[in-house]
Design a protein around this nucleic acid. Structure first.
Length: 271
DNA sequence: ACATTGACCTGGGAGC
DNA sequence: TGCTCCCAGGTCAATG
C-alpha cells in the first residue's frame, strides 16, 4: 500500500501529535503480523516519552526515552491519530495510547505490516541494516547507480525496486520514474548508459518529491494520518492506466508482468 | 553473487 | 444475490 511518499506524509502527520508525549499503554489485539509483535513491546514501552519520529525507507521510527518503535505498513497498513475512546474495528491490531488522550491506531487487514520494539539502535535492526541509500539523499546519485548496475542482467524496473540498490521505490513510482526517464522497463540494468541513468536518478527524485509535496498517492484505503486522503493519483502517467492513451503520445499504455508484479509503460515513449 | 519464485494474508471487483 | 477467480501499494526466505 504505502510507498515512500505515503510513509513520509504519515510521519509528518503523526509527529506533531505525539512529540514529547508519554506512552501510557500499548494495546495489542493481534500479534500475528508479518512478524509476531513481541510482548516486550507492551511490557517496556509504557512510561517512555516520544523524542522524535523518523523515517528510514518505508519504516517509521518512533524514538522514545526507553527505546524505539519500528513500524512498517506492508501492503494494506494504515496509521491514524484518534481520540482515546474511539472504538476499535476489525483489523485494528495495535493502539499506542498517549498522555494527551490520543492514540496511534495501527490497522492492517492483510497483516503484512510489522511492529517492532527495540532498545538498541533501530538502524542496526536485522531488517534495516542491509538497506541501500535513501533515494532523496545525495548519496543516491548517477555514479552509484552506474557502478551498482554494471554486469547486471536484471531488468531495470526490478533493479530499482531492489532495496539493496535504493530504498523506497515501490511499484507505482518505479513505473512512473521509468516513464519520465523514457526508459523501457525490460532493459537490462547493466546495459543502460551513464547518461540515461543520470536522467533516471533525477526522475526518481522528482517523482518522489512531487508525491510528498502532494501528500502521497490516493489509492484504495490510503489516508493520511489525520484521515484526509492524499491526491497524487491524478498525476500518474502510466500506473493503473492499461489501454488508456499515453499523456504524451496518445498511444495505449501497456501492462506486463515483471518479477510477479505489474508494470505499466508506454511502448512508444519508453525505449 | 545474482536472479527468480513462493509465501505471508484479506478484501474488493469482475464475471458468471 | 452469491459464488469463484483474480488482483492488489511489500519484502523476506528459499531455491536455482
Amino acid at each position: 500500500m504505502p510507498e515512500l511518499p505515503e510513509v513520509e506524509t504519515m510521519r509528518r502527520g503523526i509527529e506533531p501529535h505525539i512529540l514529547n508525549e508519554t506512552i501510557i499503554t500499548i494495546i495489542v489485539r493481534e500479534r500475528r503480523l508479518r512478524w509476531p509483535v513481541s510482548k516486550q513491546f507492551d511490557a517496556q514501552a509504557p512510561g517512555s516519552k516520544v523524542q522524535q519520529v523518523q523515517r528510514r525507507s518505508k519504516y517509521l521510527l518512533v524514538y522514545t526515552s526507553k527505546g524505539c518503535i519500528i513500524l512498517h505498513l506492508g501492503m494494506s497498513g494504515s496509521l491514524r491519530i484518534l481520540d482515546v475512546n474511539t472504538p476499535a474495528e476489525k483489523h485494528d491490531h495495535v493502539d499506542i495510547v498517549f498522555s494527551n488522550n490520543k492514540i496511534i491506531r495501527f490497522r492492517d487487514p492483510r497483516r503484512f505490516g510489522s511492529v517492532f520494539w527495540t532498545r538498541a539502535d533501530p538502524l542496526k535492526h536485522k531488517l534495516l541494516i542491509k538497506l541501500g541509500p535513501e533515494p532523496l539523499d545525495e548519496i543516491f546519485c548517477p555514479e552509484l547507480l552506474f557502478k551498482k548496475s554494471r554486469g547486471r542482467k536484471q531488468n531495470i524496473k526490478t533493479f530499482i525496486m531492489n532495496s539493496q540498490i535504493v530504498v523506497g521505490v515501490g511499484n507505482i513510482y518505479a513505473c512512473e520514474s521509468l516513464f519520465l526517464a523514457g526508459i523501457h522497463p525490460t532493459t537490462a540494468a547493466g546495459k543502460i548508459s551513464k547518461k540515461r541513468l543520470e536522467i533516471l536518478v533525477e526522475t526518481i527524485k522528482d517523482v518522489l518529491n512531487k508525491a510528498i509535496k502532494k501528500g502521497g498517492t490516493t489509492l484504495k484505503d490510503f489516508t493520511q494520518a489525520d484521515g484526509n486522503p492524499g491526491y497524487f493519483a491524478q498525476s500518474l502517467n502510466v500506473y493503473g492506466r492499461e489501454s488508456e492513451p499515453c499523456n504524451v503520445c496518445k498511444k495505449p499504455v501497456k501492462k506486463i508482468t515483471q518479477c510477479q508484479r505489474s508494470t505499466f509503460y508506454c511502448p512508444a515513449c519508453q525505449r
